[in-house]
Design a protein around this nucleic acid. Structure first.
Lengths: 278, 278
DNA sequence: CCTTCCTGTTTATGCTGTACACATAGTCGT
DNA sequence: ACGACTATGTGTACAGCATAAACAGGAAGG
C-alpha cells in the first residue's frame, strides 16, 4: 500500500554511471516521456497508459522501472528542477537574491505547468531539488535572521511562488481549453453581477475602478513579502548583539548581566575549536 | 462538455423559499451529505457513488439535482462558507481585522479540510463566499490603499491562507493515514541525510539547530505579510494628497501645478452629487 | 382522460492505477 | 555446457471513477 520511501531515495539519487544507454526502457526514458506528456496535457492528463503508448511499450512494462504513478511524478519533479538558468546573474544582497530565485522558480513553472499542480506531503527531495533549496537558503546567510527564520522565510517564498504559479497556470489552461478569455467569461456573468450590487465594499471598489487595472499578482505579492521580511531582518539587525554569534539563536535573557557570549556550551566549544584551527 | 455557468449561478443563488422540505432528494440534502463525506474522507474520497449510497439512492439520481461533481463541490464550498463565527469580535484597525479574518479562514479549513484542496479557476462565488469577500475587502477601507491594491492584498492573504491550510491538512491526513508522525518519518530517512551532508548551507543550518524548533508556519507568514502590507500603507499615507479623494486612484502627475482635485471628470461629478445629497 | 413534466432507475461506456501470472532472454555458478 | 536464477516485458483482470442515454412511474395541469 504505502510505497517504500527508501526505494524513492534510491531512485532519485541513483547514479547513472555513464554506461552507454541500452535499448529498451529505462527510468530516464520514462521520465522524459512523462515530462513531455505532462507539459502538453497537464498533470491530470498524465497516465501510465499514455506514457507507455508514447514509448511503444505496454502499460505494465513501466512498473518494472518505476514503482507507480506518484513516484514517477517525483522523478519528473527533480528532473526539471535540474534545468539550470544561465546562472550568470547571481545578484548580491539578500533581497535581490531572493527575488531572483523566486522569479526563476516561477519561470520554471511556466515552462512546466504541471509542476505547480503537484500535491502531497513527504516529497523526498532529489539532488536537483536539494541544490535549489540550498541555493535559496544561501541567499539569506549574512543576515541576522535566526536559523529557524531563514528556513521559514524560504518556505514562505516557495509557497507564494507555488500559489501564484497555480493561479496563472490554471487560468491559462482554462482559457485555451475553452477558447474563452477570463475577461470575456466573467463579463458574461450578468446574473451574478446583479447579486453583487448589494454588497457595499465590492460595489464601491467596482465603481472606483478597482478591477479595471489589476495589479500583477505575483510581483505585488513578492514585493509585499520581501518588504515584510525586510522588516524582520532590520529588527534582528538592531539587536544583533543579543543573539549567539555562533549559531544566531537568541541568548537567554536570564543570563544578562553576566558575561554572556554564546547561547550554549556546545556553541562555545564550536567557536573555540574554530579559533584553534585558524 | 463545459457546464453552463449560468446554471451554476442559478444553483448557488437559489432561494430556498422556506417551503416545507418534501421527501426524496434535494440539492440541500445532497450537499449536506457530500460535506459529511468529504469531511471524513477528503476531497479525493468524495465520489458520486458514495454520496448516493449515503442517501440511499442510486448514483444517477444525484444528476437530477446537481449537474456534476465539480458543481457539487462548488455548492459545498459556499455552504460551509456560511458557517459564521460568533461574530462578536470585530477588531478595529485594518491590521487586526485582516489578521482576524485570515485566522477565521484557516480555522474553517481545519474544520473542513477538503476546502483547502479545492482547485480550479472560474469559481462562481455564492452568497456566502461573496459576503466573506466583502468583509475582507472592508477591513481595508479607511487605509490610503488604491482600489486595485485593496483587491490585490485580499487576494494575497487568501492565497497565503490556502497554501498554509493545504500544508497542514495534507500533513495531518498523511499522519493519520499511515500512523507515522512527520518527525518519525523524516527521522527514518537516513539514506537521504547522507546525501544532504554535501550541501553547505543546509549543513550549517542543521548544525545550528534550525530544524529543532521550527517557526509556526502560518503565524510567521501572516506576520511577514502584514508587515509588508503595512509598509505599503504607510507609503500611501505619506502621499495621500497625490491620490484622488473620491476613488483613491493616483492623480495624473501631468496636471500638477494646476488645481488638481480628482482623477477624472467622473469622480468630480460623483463627489458633487454626494455633496448635493448631504 | 390524456399529456407533460418531474424524479429516480437501469444499463452501458470509457477512463484510471495496478495486482498477478506468465514468457522470454541473458547471465552466472558449477 | 548446462541448469538455475534474474531481469525485463506482456496479457489479463479488477475495482473504482464520472456520466451519457434510454426508460419507468407518479403527480399535476389542461
Amino acid at each position: 500500500m504505502t510505497p517504500d520511501p527508501d526505494r524513492g531515495v534510491e531512485l532519485l539519487w541513483r547514479q547513472e554511471e555513464g554506461r552507454e544507454p541500452r535499448p529498451g526502457l529505462s527510468v530516464a526514458r520514462i521520465v522524459r516521456a512523462a515530462i513531455e506528456l505532462a507539459d502538453a496535457e497537464g498533470l491530470e492528463g498524465l497516465s501510465m497508459r499514455k506514457v507507455a503508448d508514447r514509448l511503444g511499450f505496454t502499460t505494465m512494462s513501466l512498473y518494472r522501472h518505476v514503482p507507480g504513478r506518484d513516484q514517477l511524478v517525483e522523478l519528473m519533479r527533480d528532473e526539471v528542477m535540474g534545468e539550470r538558468p544561465p546562472d550568470a546573474d547571481r545578484p548580491s544582497g539578500w533581497r535581490a537574491g531572493l527575488a531572483a530565485v523566486a522569479r526563476q522558480a516561477l519561470e520554471l513553472r511556466m515552462r512546466h505547468p504541471w509542476l505547480a499542480e503537484v500535491r502531497g506531503t513527504r516529497h523526498i527531495p532529489g539532488p536537483n531539488a536539494v541544490a535549489q533549496y540550498d541555493r535559496m537558503l544561501a541567499t539569506l546567510t549574512g543576515t541576522a535572521l535566526r536559523p529557524s527564520e531563514v528556513i521559514a522565510v524560504v518556505g514562505l517564498i516557495g509557497r507564494l511562488v507555488d500559489a501564484e504559479a497555480l493561479l496563472i497556470v490554471e487560468t491559462r489552461r482554462e482559457e485555451q481549453r475553452s477558447g474563452v478569455s477570463e475577461q470575456e467569461w466573467w463579463g458574461s456573468r450578468d446574473a451574478l453581477y446583479e447579486q453583487l450590487n448589494h454588497y457595499p465594499t465590492i460595489t464601491r471598489l467596482w465603481e472606483t475602478g478597482g478591477w479595471d487595472h489589476p495589479e500583477d499578482s505575483f510581483e505585488f505579492g513578492l514585493r509585499r513579502l520581501l518588504d515584510g521580511i525586510e522588516v524582520l531582518i532590520r529588527e534582528r539587525d538592531e539587536n544583533r548583539d543579543e543573539t549567539c554569534p555562533e549559531c544566531g539563536n537568541p541568548l537567554d535573557p536570564a543570563t544578562s548581566g553576566r558575561p554572556r557570549v554564546y547561547c550554549s556550551r556546545a556553541c562555545q566549544q564550536r567557536a573555540y575549536r574554530k579559533r584553534q584551527k585558524s
